[in-house]
């Protein structure tokens, strides 16, 4: 405080009057946009490519990295495997709860997984028993599971996740890393045959087309 009473008030008034004429700090939003730094995290969003399909590769890395487990997956994706379920903000809590349940080892009712449920998980329990329920032996467990079923059914993977306590994302990541592990049953060619049986005309047309192109009847064009 100064010796002269009121001098501080007058100096304050002078300062506000000076600020009155200074350039303003407001960003007039719709016309001017704030300078957002390149590292800004912002809002989580799934990207689409130019054909309108999801760019998501279902690698589960984001779900694995998410600290509060608000990212979860379910349904079908572009390759017919999974659909990344990324609900509106109000569904995060629900999915997070579900995710926590799944980690806790109890069964989670999720209609998106119903399609994949139709396997008997009894053999998985036997396999896990032999490997002492230890997630460190994840690869041998998965190989043994594939040896039993012929492929890796989702139900079996979920069972492994529930019993060993490993994240589903981690099991899926491990399984999708190795080329010799597969998620579809090895009946793709049988299905193709079935299609060709349903459409004999098309098969005949393809055969004649191949013959006309290569000169070899029934040749693989």
């Amino acid at each position: 405080m100064s010796l002269v009473p009121g001098l501080g008030l007058v100096r304050g008034m002078a300062l506000t009057l000076r600020r009155f004429f200074e350039p303003k700090a407001t960003i007039r939003y719709p016309e001017v946009q704030a300078d957002i730094p390149p590292k800004f995290r912002g809002r989580l969003q799934l990207l689409y490519d130019e054909y309108g399909t999801l760019k998501c590769e279902t690698c589960f890395q984001c779900a694995q990295a998410c600290p509060i487990e608000c990212i979860d997956m379910g349904g079908m994706d572009t390759k017919g495997r999974f659909h990344v379920h990324w609900g509106a903000a109000e569904t995060y809590g629900e999915r997070r709860e579900e995710s926590a349940l799944r980690r806790s080892g109890r069964t989670v009712p999720d209609p998106a997984y119903d399609h994949f449920e139709g396997v008997d998980v009894g053999p998985v329990d036997d396999i896990l028993e032999t490997f002492d329920h230890d997630p460190a032996h994840l690869l041998p467990i998965l190989e043994a599971t594939q040896a039993h079923y012929g492929y890796l059914p989702v139900g079996a993977l979920k069972r492994i996740s529930q019993v060993t306590g490993t994240w589903y994302a981690q099991i899926y990541g491990t399984a999708s890393f190795y080329g010799h592990l597969r998620f579809e049953p090895p009946t793709v060619t049988a299905q193709a045959t079935a299609i060709s049986e349903r459409r004999p005309d098309e098969a005949a047309f393809l055969a004649s087309l191949g013959a006309s192109l290569t000169g070899r009847p029934g040749g693989d064009a």
């Binding site: 506000t16 009057l17 600020r19 009155f20 200074e22 303003k24 700090a25 407001t26 007039r28």
Partner: peptide, 13 residues
């Protein structure tokens, strides 16, 4: 307007 300008805001515009 005046208080906004003193606050370094733009105020009503």
């Amino acid at each position: 307007k005046v208080i906004a300008l003193m606050n370094l805001r733009v105020g009503p515009d």
